Simulated assay, not measured.
Amino acid sequence: MKRSPLTPLALLVLVAAVLLAVPAMSQQDMTHVPTEGFKKITRPPAVFAHDAHNEKAALADCSACHHGEKDGKRDDTADTSGIPCSDCHTVAAAPGKTPLMRAYHRQCISCHMDKKKGPVTCGDCHEPAKK
C-alpha cells in the first residue's frame, strides 16, 4: 500500500501555519490605512507603514491601536488584531458608536498630538499620488 506524502498531522500543521501567517503578512505589507469600509473615497488613502510605524511608536502591544469594546466603551485590554476596523466602525455608525472616519482620525491624530510626533494635517497623511 502506498502512503500519502503528508500525514494528517503534518497536513494540519501546514494548514495552521498558513492560516496564522495570512494576517501577519497582510500587516507587514500594509502601506496605507484600509479604505474598504468607505463607499466613496474623497482623498487618497492615508499613508501608513504598519511595521515601521510600530517600531517608531514603540508600541508595547497591538491593543494600543487594535482595541475592543466592553459595555459600550473602548477597551484597550482587548486585542482585535486581524479584524478590520470597518467590522465595528461603520461609515454611518449607529447612535453612540464611532463612525469609521472619526475612528481613524481620532486614533491617529490624537496619538500624534499626544506624542508631539507625526503628521496632523490632511495633506501629510493623505499624500497625493506621485507623478
Score class of each variant (00 low, 15 high):
residue 99 P to S: 01
residue 94 A to G: 00
residue 74 R to E: 03
residue 109 I to K: 07
residue 39 K to M: 10
residue 53 H to R: 15
residue 12 L to F: 12
residue 69 E to P: 10
residue 44 P to V: 00
residue 30 M to E: 10
residue 114 D to L: 06
residue 28 Q to R: 13
residue 123 G to Y: 10
residue 53 H to C: 13
residue 20 L to M: 11
residue 28 Q to Y: 15
residue 57 A to D: 04
residue 131 K to N: 10
residue 106 R to M: 08
residue 42 T to R: 09
residue 111 C to W: 08
residue 6 L to T: 02
residue 37 G to N: 04
residue 126 H to Y: 04
residue 62 C to Q: 03
residue 107 Q to K: 14
residue 85 C to M: 06
residue 93 A to R: 00
residue 32 H to I: 00
residue 28 Q to M: 12
residue 43 R to H: 10
residue 130 K to P: 13
residue 2 K to V: 06
residue 27 Q to F: 14
residue 64 A to N: 05
residue 5 P to R: 04
residue 74 R to N: 05
residue 91 V to P: 07
residue 42 T to Y: 07
residue 121 T to G: 12
residue 86 S to Q: 08
residue 111 C to D: 08
residue 110 S to I: 03
residue 131 K to M: 12
residue 36 E to A: 11
residue 114 D to K: 14
residue 85 C to K: 00
residue 10 A to H: 07
residue 52 A to G: 00
residue 105 H to Q: 14
residue 72 G to W: 05
residue 118 G to H: 00
residue 43 R to M: 09
residue 3 R to A: 09
residue 37 G to H: 01
residue 47 V to Q: 12
residue 41 I to Q: 09
residue 68 G to T: 02
residue 96 G to E: 01
residue 126 H to C: 04
residue 14 L to K: 04
residue 106 R to S: 13
residue 37 G to P: 05
residue 12 L to P: 00
residue 26 S to E: 12
residue 1 M to C: 11
residue 66 H to R: 00
residue 109 I to V: 12
residue 78 A to Q: 14
residue 94 A to D: 07
residue 77 T to S: 15
residue 36 E to G: 12
residue 37 G to Y: 09
residue 108 C to V: 10
residue 111 C to R: 09
residue 103 A to F: 14
residue 17 A to K: 01
residue 65 C to L: 09
residue 88 C to L: 11
residue 105 H to S: 08
residue 115 K to F: 01
residue 96 G to T: 03
residue 49 A to P: 02
residue 106 R to H: 12
residue 90 T to G: 02
residue 92 A to K: 14
residue 124 D to L: 02
residue 36 E to R: 10
residue 14 L to V: 13
residue 45 P to K: 01
residue 57 A to Y: 06
residue 59 L to H: 11
residue 95 P to I: 06
residue 95 P to F: 06
residue 79 D to C: 00
residue 112 H to K: 05
residue 84 P to T: 01
residue 119 P to R: 08
residue 100 L to C: 06
residue 95 P to Y: 02
residue 52 A to D: 11
residue 112 H to V: 03
residue 10 A to G: 02
residue 101 M to Q: 14
